Simulated assay, not measured.
Amino acid sequence: MWTVIDSPVGELRLVEHDGALTAIEFAPFEDKHLRGERDDAHPLLVETARQLAAYFARELQDFDLPLAPVGSDFQHRVWAALREIGYGETASYGQVAARLGMTAAASRAVGLANGRNPIPIVVPCHRVIGANGTLTGYAGGLPRKQLLLGLESAALF
């Protein structure tokens, strides 16, 4: 099931499967994660929309949703590490690699896994920045990344 909601970063499509959130997509949408019919009243999608609205209103810092992103074991390890980066904080790709017990040489692999995160915002891939503190690529585009980081901490940018 899926639904579409409005947000400060544009329309978001929320996708669930078997009672877990599997994707959040930025418009314009592709159909790669789409399963089932649109259901604006599905309880998990309604709860996801509620938590996202609270996040955008700066009333929620930690999401509590069942997640089921599809990916490799390595991607799942990276995505779990992303969830450890606190609200209003950032980490470099090298720092994420180090948290996984890898050398800085793994930064590129971490970056690739980060870029394939199917549940942005909830799995906060926007909190990963370049080693020199600059904003680097973001699947939703750098303006969205900057907006999300600014939302979390106006002191960052």
Rank of each mutant, 00 (worst) to 15 (best):
R35I: 13
R35Y: 08
R35M: 06
G36K: 05
G36T: 08
G36F: 03
R38T: 02
R38I: 08
R38H: 03
D40I: 05
A41K: 14
A41D: 15
A41H: 10
A41C: 02
A41Q: 14
H42P: 01
H42W: 02
H42Y: 07
H42N: 12
H42D: 11
P43W: 01
P43G: 03
P43K: 05
P43E: 00
P43H: 02
P43Q: 02
L44T: 00
L45H: 04
L45D: 01
L45C: 02
L45T: 02
L45M: 02
V46T: 10
V46N: 00
E47A: 12
E47R: 13
E47F: 05
E47N: 09
E47D: 15
T48S: 13
T48G: 04
A49S: 14
A49V: 08
A49D: 04
R50I: 07
R50E: 11
R50N: 12
Q51M: 07
Q51D: 06
Q51H: 04
Q51A: 08
Q51P: 05
L52G: 08
L52F: 12
L52I: 12
A53I: 03
A53M: 06
A53V: 05
A53R: 15
Y55R: 11
Y55C: 06
F56M: 07
F56G: 06
F56V: 11
A57I: 05
A57D: 14
A57Q: 09
A57E: 13
A57R: 13
A57G: 12
R58P: 07
E59M: 04
E59F: 12
L60P: 07
L60K: 14
L60M: 12
L60R: 15
L60C: 10
Q61F: 13
Q61H: 15
D62P: 08
D62E: 15
D62I: 15
F63V: 03
F63A: 07
D64G: 08
D64A: 14
